[in-house]
Lab assay of single mutants.
Amino acid sequence: MAAAAAAGAGPEMVRGQVFDVGPRYTNLSYIGEGAYGMVCSAYDNVNKVRVAIKKISPFEHQTYCQRTLREIKILLRFRHENIIGINDIIRAPTIEQMKDVYIVQDLMETDLYKLLKTQHLSNDHICYFLYQILRGLKYIHSANVLHRDLKPSNLLLNTTCDLKICDFGLARVADPDHDHTGFLTEYVATRWYRAPEIMLNSKGYTKSIDIWSVGCILAEMLSNRPIFPGKHYLDQLNHILGILGSPSQEDLNCIINLKARNYLLSLPHKNKVPWNRLFPNADSKALDLLDKMLTFNPHKRIEVEQALAHPYLEQYYDPSDEPIAEAPFKFDMELDDLPKEKLKELIFEETARFQPGYRS
């Protein structure tokens, strides 16, 4: 834990890192770190609560700039109880001085990944967590956004079992017609939660990839272990087919990539493993919904509104309290091709509203 900075004593240090967030945020305490930044909790002297502050230093890398800009653009436009918001952003007053960006968010005690390492969940908890994931996802999908990296560590939890989806750095506007060349190379989302079509096709992607990830998360809540822990690309596919069985001819016809289709045709026939054999203690309604989410063919996979209306979630289902976005989200430009200098300018502009004396 960093010592509390005395008023006016300059930035606090946390594990050798400068955290320049005073005077409003003090009493910093280390939480963890990701690929390009550290997260601390801090005391907000204005709202009198502890908050989470993520320090991001992305400006050396085009990919990190892209992810940072995506996350900020999306989260500043989203407003939903099951999606983490941005409360404040701290950065230098000029673009030349801006080396880091500090993002202030609600402090959540833990995440689903940490929880599943230590606790076996009751059916009631599984049901409530799944409902909140789908409630947040309904809003995301209504904005025409794909999260693309749903996994237990991106689901934040607090002691009252509130759940918030975080990390929109890989999110995209849904565009089933656009052929994202190089899709697989830039697709760094965790393999275990990846839909089979991501490994088999490169053309376009749809909201059904997020539903697949939610199915993987439900299976993990039922058993405290990942359902498809593939060691590499082909191993991942083999794990999936080992449980779902061989795809039907109709399902194979959806695979545009001939090499991928021929690979699947070359494999020995596998039978589907019954879900109640894998999860003998699970609620039968939970397994019915799991089956509809972990469907090989993305066109037959359940959609988020149908999933919310499934009998497993009937005690929570309330369409009048499951809000959607006001308007579909649009990125003005494809960020993939922009140089990091341009992305830095866009991050600077996007964060201006939090600067003292800002006038829109």
Rank of each mutant, 00 (worst) to 15 (best):
A9I: 13
P11R: 04
E12F: 15
M13N: 06
R15D: 09
D20K: 13
P23N: 15
Y25P: 03
N27I: 00
S29D: 12
I31N: 01
I31K: 14
G32N: 13
E33F: 13
A35T: 00
Y36G: 13
G37T: 02
N47T: 08
N47D: 03
K48S: 10
V51Y: 13
V51Q: 13
A52T: 01
I53L: 10
K55A: 07
I56Q: 10
I56K: 03
E60G: 11
Q62N: 10
T63V: 14
Y64L: 06
C65W: 14
Q66M: 06
L69F: 13
K73Q: 03
I74F: 00
R77T: 12
R79K: 04
R79E: 12
N82D: 08
G85D: 03
I90A: 15
R91K: 14
P93M: 12
P93H: 13
Q97K: 02
M98Q: 14
M98P: 10
K99Y: 09
K99S: 07
D100A: 05
Y102W: 13
I103V: 09
I103T: 08
I103N: 02
I103P: 10
V104P: 07
Q105N: 13
E109S: 12
E109Q: 07
Y113A: 10
Y113E: 13
L121G: 07
L130Y: 06
Y131Q: 15
I133K: 06
R135L: 03
L137F: 12
K138V: 08
H141L: 00
S142C: 11
H147F: 10
R148Q: 00
D149Q: 02
S153N: 04
L157K: 05
T159Q: 04
C161R: 03
D162L: 13
C166F: 01
G169E: 05
L170S: 10
L170Y: 04
V173H: 06
P176W: 05
D179A: 00
D179T: 05
H180Y: 05
H180N: 00
H180V: 04
T181S: 00
G182M: 09
Y187G: 07
W192C: 00
A195H: 08
E197H: 04
S202V: 06
K203T: 06
G204F: 12
I209N: 01
E220D: 01
L222K: 07
F228N: 09
G230F: 10
L234C: 07
L237K: 04
N238E: 09
I240K: 04
L241F: 08
G242R: 15
S246N: 06
P247G: 13
E250C: 11
L252A: 07
I256H: 06
N257D: 03
N262C: 13
Y263P: 09
P268I: 10
N271M: 13
K272L: 08
N276L: 11
R277W: 12
R277C: 09
L278W: 12
L278P: 12
A282E: 13
D283P: 14
D283G: 13
K285Y: 09
K285S: 13
D288H: 13
D288I: 07
D291R: 06
T295H: 11
T295F: 13
N297K: 02
P298Q: 14
R301N: 05
Q306C: 14
A307S: 01
L308N: 10
H310I: 03
P311D: 13
Y312H: 09
L313G: 03
L313H: 11
L313P: 04
E314Q: 13
Q315E: 13
Y317M: 11
E322I: 15
F331A: 15
L335C: 14
K342Q: 08
K342M: 14
K342C: 13
K342T: 06
I347N: 02
F348K: 08
E349Y: 15
R353A: 13
Q355W: 10
P356A: 15
R359N: 15
R359M: 01
